[in-house]
Design a protein around this nucleic acid. Structure first.
Lengths: 105, 105
DNA sequence: ACCAAAGTACGACCGATGTCAAACTTCGAC
DNA sequence: GTCGAAGTTTGACATCGGTCGTACTTTGGT
């Protein structure tokens, strides 16, 4: 299982797919945590309220949409945000979403 | 039925709800058509590939998310984009989405 | 008064998606 | 080589959301 999974190229990025990935709160949380971190984060290192198998599913969706890049380090799968590439194709999008709106009363 | 339906206030805008509204291609198309128009557009005046009852549903979702404003003129329901208000709460979001990405081959 | 146009409301249907548990696979450490 | 940690895979399940048709309501025109 040490194979690197397939990542889409920038030229394949699709707005519909990216939005479908980002509409899920758990996945937006993952993106936000990556955006706030300066280092890569293993799948198990996120604060998300779902089981491991569900987490795997979310990471797959994010990777297939081009939002994250994954590579193995030992038995851990490390994740990083493809910020620059996303910004290149959909300028302003991640900015608008990670700029967490303070949920008022 | 000439009553004006309820519209959320700017302070009630919710990112999750806005994203759920914008993730549907038909609704994004409605938003794009409104954004490209300088006048209000009646429900029947949009180029969308769905039945009237489905269209009503989409307009409701958009209105409840705060994306559009609706008011009656005779028997027609006119729609306008709440651009400025959206930009105020989620700066850059509509820009990122209406800047339609040219879908290459 | 009557009729057509513009939407709405109500059900029904169905495909997609998020969720989990359980079994399995890999890799590193000892 | 054995074991545990980290993820994946598979299958099942439930819910949700988009879709439509039909019946209904309201409004404006004749």
């Amino acid at each position: 299982m040490g194979r690197t999974p397939p990542h889409p190229e920038v030229s394949q990025f699709d707005l519909q797919q990216v939005l479908e990935a980002l509409v899920d709160p758990v996945r937006r949380s993952i993106v936000a945590q990556l955006d706030a971190s300066d280092a890569d984060i293993p799948c198990g290192g996120f604060d998300i309220p779902v089981s491991k198998s569900t987490a795997t599913h979310h990471f797959n969706v994010l990777r297939e949409a081009g939002l994250i890049r994954q590579h193995y380090v030992g038995t851990s799968r490390m994740n990083s945000l493809r910020r620059a590439e996303m910004d290149e194709v959909f300028p302003g999008l991640l900015d608008a979403l990670t700029r967490q709106p303070a949920k008022k009363t």
